[in-house]
Design a protein around this nucleic acid. Structure first.
Lengths: 237, 237
DNA sequence: ACCTGAACACCGTTCAAGT
DNA sequence: ACCTGAACACCGTTCAAGT
C-alpha cells in the first residue's frame, strides 16, 4: 500500500500513477465495458503505461474491483443527509430508509459494483455505511444486545438485494436492455404450464411492469416495519 | 439444447455425455475447487473427453455455472415440506420461514452457488422456488395486487442475503476458514478510530461470535413480521 | 520508489475433421 | 448426432531490468 505524495507532475498525459488514479480509471472502464471489459492491458493503455506498473498500486484485479466498488459506495455516503427532523425512534426509521435508498441508487448507476460490496464490511466506505446504519439502529430504542444483528441484517439487505435486482443488465447498461430482459423473462413465464407454476403464470404482467426501485423499497419497508414493531410494540392507531 | 436418449452405453469410464452428466461433474468440481477451479479442460479430463465436447451440451461456462447453481437450489426444494398444520395465514408465515431456511442451508453447503441464483427467476428450480413463495404469500391474506411485489421481495431476500452471508469463504470451504476470516475482520474493526466508527468499534465481539444462520434468520424474521403486520394488522395480545 | 515490457502459465471458445 | 483435439485470441500475473 503505497502512499501518494505530492501532485501529478504536469499536465495529463504521462503523469505519475497513484492508487487513486488507477481506481478512478478502473471505475470509468467498468462503467463503460462492465467487469469483463476491465483488463489490465486496456487499463494500462489508458494510463499510458504497461500492465506491470499497475501491480505496484494494487495487489490484484480482485482487489482493484473491490476498491472500485467501494468508491461507488462512497458516492452514496457523500450525498447530503436529509435532515428531516431525524430525532427519536421514528426519525431513525426514516433515516435508515433514506440511507438505504441512496445506496441503491448509487449502485444502480454502476451495476457492476453491486455484487462486490461484501459483508462483513472491510473497505472504508462499506465500514462507514455499516457504522451509519448502526448509529441509526441505536436510536431506534432496540435493546443493545440486538444492535449488531439488526444492523448487519439491514446492511445485508441493502447490499445483497441491490445486487440481486441490479445484476442482470451487467453488460453495458441502458434501461432498454433491462426492459428487454424483463419482457423476455415474462414471455418465458407465460409459456410455463399453469399446473406446475400456478402463481408465476398469473403474475407475468406484474413482472413486465414492475419498477426495480419499488421492488427494492417493498422489501425494505417490510423489514423496517418489522423493526419498528420490535423496537416499540405499540399498534398503529 | 440436446435431448438425452437412452442409457449411457456401458460401465463408467468412456460413457456418452449428457447435459446432466456435465452439470453433475461441474457441481462436484465447483464443490472441490470453487468457481475459479472449474475449468473446461479439467472438467473434460474428468469426463474423459476434450474441452470441445462440452460445448455440445452447454453454451458457455456462464450457462454451466448457472445450471449447476440451479441444481443446488433443487436440493432445497426436494427436501420434504414439514407439514406442521400449514393452513391459514399463520401457517403461511411458518411455511415461508421453513422454505427460506432450507434454501439458505442448501446454498451454505455449496458456497459458490449462492451468487448465481438470479432474479428474476429463469431456470427451473429458481422458478419453482418463486412459485412456492408466491403460493404461500397468497395464503397470507394480502391483497392480490401486492402478491407479486411481496413474493419477489422475499425471493430477493433469500437469494441476495444468502449470497452476501455465504460468499467470503468462496475458496475451499471449511468453517475454520470462515472463523479465521471473521476473526481477522474483527481485529480490523478493533483498530479503527472510535471517533470515526463509534458503532463498529463497540460491536467487534458480536462480529467474532455471530452465527451466519442466525444472521440470516434475524433479517428474515424482521421481514416476515412486517409481512404479517401488513397482512392482518391485529396487534399482539 | 516506481515504472517498463517481455514472458509465463494459463484461460474460454471455435472449428475442421472424424465416427 | 456427437465427439476429438489442435489452434485462436486472449487473460492475470511475474520479474529482471531500468530510472
Amino acid at each position: 500500500m503505497p502512499r501518494t505524495r505530492g501532485r501529478a507532475p504536469a499536465g495529463g498525459r504521462a503523469g505519475a500513477l497513484s492508487r487513486e488514479i488507477v481506481i478512478d480509471a478502473a471505475v470509468a472502464l467498468l462503467d463503460e465495458h462492465g467487469e469483463r471489459g476491465l483488463t489490465f492491458r486496456l487499463l494500462a493503455e489508458r494510463l499510458n503505461t504497461g500492465p506491470g506498473a499497475l501491480y505496484w498500486h494494487v495487489a490484484s484485479k480482485d482487489e482493484l474491483v473491490a476498491l472500485a466498488a467501494d468508491q461507488v459506495l462512497g458516492h452514496a455516503l457523500a450525498a447530503p443527509v436529509p435532515e428531516t427532523d431525524t430525532t427519536g425512534a421514528a426519525g431513525a426509521g426514516t433515516g435508515l430508509r433514506a440511507l438505504a435508498v441512496a445506496v441503491f441508487d448509487a449502485l444502480d448507476r454502476h451495476p457492476w459494483a453491486a455484487s462486490h460490496v461484501t459483508a462483513p464490511a472491510t473497505l472504508t466506505n462499506a465500514l462507514r455505511l455499516l457504522d451509519r446504519i448502526g448509529a441509526l439502529v441505536v436510536r431506534t430504542g432496540l435493546p443493545a444486545g440486538r444492535h449488531f444483528a439488526v444492523s448487519t441484517a439491514i446492511f445485508n439487505y441493502v447490499t445483497g438485494v441491490s445486487a440481486q435486482i441490479i445484476a442482470p443488465g451487467v453488460i453495458s447498461g441502458g434501461s432498454t436492455d433491462r426492459d428487454a430482459f424483463l419482457a423476455r423473462t415474462a414471455e418465458r413465464w407465460e409459456r410455463l404450464d399453469p399446473g406446475d407454476y400456478p402463481f408465476l403464470t398469473r403474475v407475468t404482467a406484474d413482472l413486465r411492469d414492475h419498477d426495480d426501485r419499488d421492488q427494492f423499497t417493498t422489501g425494505l419497508d417490510l423489514l423496517l416495519d418489522g423493526l419498528s414493531a420490535a423496537a416499540g410494540p405499540r399498534p398503529p392507531a
